[in-house]
Computed example of a mutant assay.
Amino acid sequence: MSGSYKTIYWGLLLIAFNFYLGNINVLPDFLGFIMISKGLRELGEVSYEEEYFRKSKIISNLMIVITLIQYIIGIYICGRAINFTRIGIVFFTIGNFINVITLVVIYYILKGIYAEVENRNLTVFMEKINSVWSFKLVVSLITFLACAFIINAGDFTLIIMPIVAIIGIIATIRVALVVKEAGKELS
C-alpha cells in the first residue's frame, strides 16, 4: 500500500511543476495523472475506503485524456504564452477547467485517506488532512479569482500572478507530502 501512495505523491508533484524547454513542457500534467491513476488503482484493490479512490481514479483517467489534449494544443499555440485569440481563449478556458477538476481529484484522494485515518482513529493526522485541504481550497479559489483579472494584464496582475502561482505550487506540494505521509501511517 505504501508504494501506491508514493506513486500518487510523485504524480501530484508532476502536476505541481511545469518546466519548459522552449515551448515544450518537459513535465506534462498527463504524466502526473497517469501516475495518480495507477496509484489509485492499486489502492482500490486493497483499500476499505475504495469508493473515494474509485471516484478519483475515474476522474484521473478522464484527466489523462484532457491534459493530453491540452498538451497538444499548447504545442500548437507555442507553449505557455496566453494570447487572447480564439484558440488562446480556448486554451485558457481548458486550463481553468483542468484546475477545477484537479481540485476534485485532490479532494477525493484526501477524503479517501481521511476515511482510512478516521477508521484507525489517528486524530492528529485527521487534523493535518483538514488543514492541508483547507489551504489548497483557499489557494485554488484565489487562483480562480485572479484569473478573472488576467485579461487586463495590468502591472498589478503581472506582479500578483507569479506570487499566486508559487503559493499554488506550495499548496499542491503540501497535499503531496500528506499523501506520502499517509503511505507511512497506513502501511
Rank of each mutant, 00 (worst) to 15 (best):
I8W: 07
L62A: 10
C78V: 07
M63D: 04
V26K: 01
V90Q: 11
Y76Q: 03
Y71V: 01
G22R: 14
A16K: 02
F91H: 15
G32M: 08
I82D: 06
I59D: 14
G74Y: 00
I73F: 03
G39T: 03
R86K: 13
F30S: 04
F53S: 04
P28R: 00
Y48D: 11
N83G: 06
I75L: 08
T67F: 05
G79N: 01
F17A: 09
N23T: 14
R54I: 07
G74P: 00
N25K: 00
E45Q: 15
E42L: 14
G44A: 04
I82S: 06
I66L: 15
S60A: 15
I69D: 00
I89P: 03
N23F: 13
S60P: 07
G22F: 13
M63L: 15
F19P: 02
N83L: 13
F91W: 12
Y9G: 08
R41W: 12
I75D: 01
V90G: 12
L40D: 06
L31C: 09
I72A: 00
V26C: 02
G11C: 09
I24G: 03
T93M: 07
M35L: 15
I87P: 03
E42M: 13
G22I: 14
K38V: 14
I82A: 07
I24P: 02
F33Q: 03
R80A: 09
E49Y: 11
L14A: 08
E42G: 08
F30P: 03
N61R: 09
I69N: 00
